[in-house]
Simulated scan of single mutants.
Amino acid sequence: MATEAAGGHGEAETGLVFHPMDQFIVSPLFGDGPVGMFTITNVTLWMAITVLAVILLLVVGSSGRSIVPGRLQSVAELAYGFIYKMVEDVTGKEGVKYFPYIMTLFMFIVLANVLGLIPMAFTTTSHIAVTGILAMAVFLAVTILGFIKHGAHFLELFWVSSAPLALRPILAVIEVISYFVRPVSHSIRLAGNMMAGHAVIKVFAAFAAIAAISPLSVLAITAMYGLEILVAFIQAYVFTILTCVYLKDALHPHH
Rank of each mutant, 00 (worst) to 15 (best):
H9G: 05
V114N: 03
R182L: 11
A220I: 14
T222C: 11
V231C: 03
L140H: 05
P164T: 05
G132P: 09
F239S: 06
I229L: 15
L16G: 08
V238N: 08
G151S: 02
V160R: 03
M195Q: 12
M136I: 09
S178V: 10
S162C: 02
A79E: 12
A250V: 07
I55M: 08
A223V: 15
F239I: 03
P164H: 06
A220P: 08
A6S: 11
A79K: 15
M86H: 02
F30V: 15
T50N: 14
A236L: 10
K202Q: 12
I234P: 00
T41Y: 11
V90H: 04
A196G: 07
M107C: 15
P215E: 12
T39R: 12
A152M: 13
I40M: 14
M86P: 02
W159Q: 03
L16A: 12
E13A: 12
F30Y: 15
L57D: 05
F147I: 12
M224P: 02
L145F: 01
F158Q: 00
T50K: 08
T39V: 11
V203N: 03
G197C: 08
I49W: 12
L111M: 13
I109F: 05
M86S: 03
S62E: 11
G146H: 00
T39K: 14
L242G: 06
G31Q: 07
A6P: 01
V160G: 00
V245A: 13
L58G: 07
I213A: 10
I83M: 07
M107F: 00
H254M: 14
L190H: 05
Y179L: 03
T44K: 14
L111K: 01
K93Y: 07
A220H: 04
Y237M: 10
F204R: 07
G31A: 11
A196E: 12
D22C: 01
